[in-house]
Design a protein around this nucleic acid. Structure first.
Length: 273
DNA sequence: ACCCAGGCGACGA
DNA sequence: TCGTCGCATGGG
């Protein structure tokens, strides 16, 4: 018999939001599931347990209100309407169907930047491992038992050698460098919010160790600018194979980034290179 | 022993 | 603006 936990609140429905797809489509690296299907994660220092139950998305948010998490899970965007623009391309249509229920999370900008710096030339299990190691070493332990993502300021005072426990290789220098840029305000996320996606990407790309792809991911996942369209090896393969030669992602409109994530998730799940 | 992983920067043509 | 290479590390 199932024990009654502390009050779970209804956040959404399984029809609107698919947890496993959203957490495992490759956009984030710190949400983990246990054997009971309960996902645990932390954002902006706030911990959350979240799961599916009888067609509903139930969550247990000890130290934060539901509006915060509704925003984090982007529950006020109409995804059905957002995908309406994708019908022009058959392959994308299939990807969107397959990825139905994915929401683009509103992650912390610094966490997104740092995580995707780590992602370069790396595989997802190891990205998760390095990110988690970064958090347990330099984040703050919360009452939930989870570690917050370490602030840029806290990393800015470290040396490259302090990051040795991460085994992040050449990326360590990139992390420190980006942390210092944020800490000394030469990189200002508030300013980036006010820019359009191409301008924000250009600005981020000025940082040593941040190229177009990492910048695009930061803008999409950290600034929630949904027209940002990161092109990695998987997307490039899909574009070459399934789209016209002269295809321009701008044709996908203001939710091109969502299309990108559908394609990435589908390709990684169904096409082995 | 090789090859690859949600790339990037430096360099040369 | 293009291709090519080295970069750390770990897993297949």
């Amino acid at each position: 018999m199932k024990t009654l936990q502390s009050a779970g609140c209804v956040l959404s429905s399984t029809q609107e939001l698919n947890l496993s797809k959203t957490f495992e489509c490759g956009q984030c690296f710190r949400w983990n599931v246990n054997k009971s299907g309960i996902y645990t994660g932390i954002a902006y220092g706030h911990s959350l347990k979240i799961w599916e139950e009888n067609g509903l998305i139930i969550c247990d948010a000890p130290d934060c209100d539901l509006p915060f998490w509704r925003d984090y899970f982007d529950l006020d965007t109409n995804y059905a309407a957002a995908t309406a623009d994708f019908t022009q391309y058959d392959y994308l249509q299939s990807c969107a169907k397959y990825g139905e229920g994915i929401h683009i999370l509103k992650q912390e900008p610094w966490e997104a930047l740092c995580s995707f710096i780590i992602s370069q030339c790396n595989n997802i299990p190891r990205i998760k491992k390095i990110v988690e190691c970064l958090c347990t070493n330099f984040g703050e332990l919360q009452p939930s038992g989870l570690f917050s993502f370490p602030s840029a300021e806290s990393l800015a005072v470290l040396s490259e050698r302090d990051l040795a426990p991460l085994h992040s290789g050449y990326r360590a220098a990139y992390i420190i460098n980006a942390a210092r840029a944020v800490a000394e305000k030469s990189l200002d996320f508030n300013l980036l919010y006010s820019m359009d996606a191409p301008a924000a990407i250009a600005e981020l790309s000025k940082i040593h160790g941040v190229g177009k792809k990492v910048a695009s991911c930061t803008v999409l996942f950290g600034l929630h600018k949904m027209d940002s369209f990161p092109i990695d090896v998987w997307i490039k393969r899909a574009l070459d194979k399934h789209f016209p030669p002269d295809f321009d992602p701008k044709a996908l409109g203001s939710y091109a980034g969502l299309a990108q994530q559908y394609i990435f998730f589908y390709a990684r799940s169904n096409e082995s290179k």
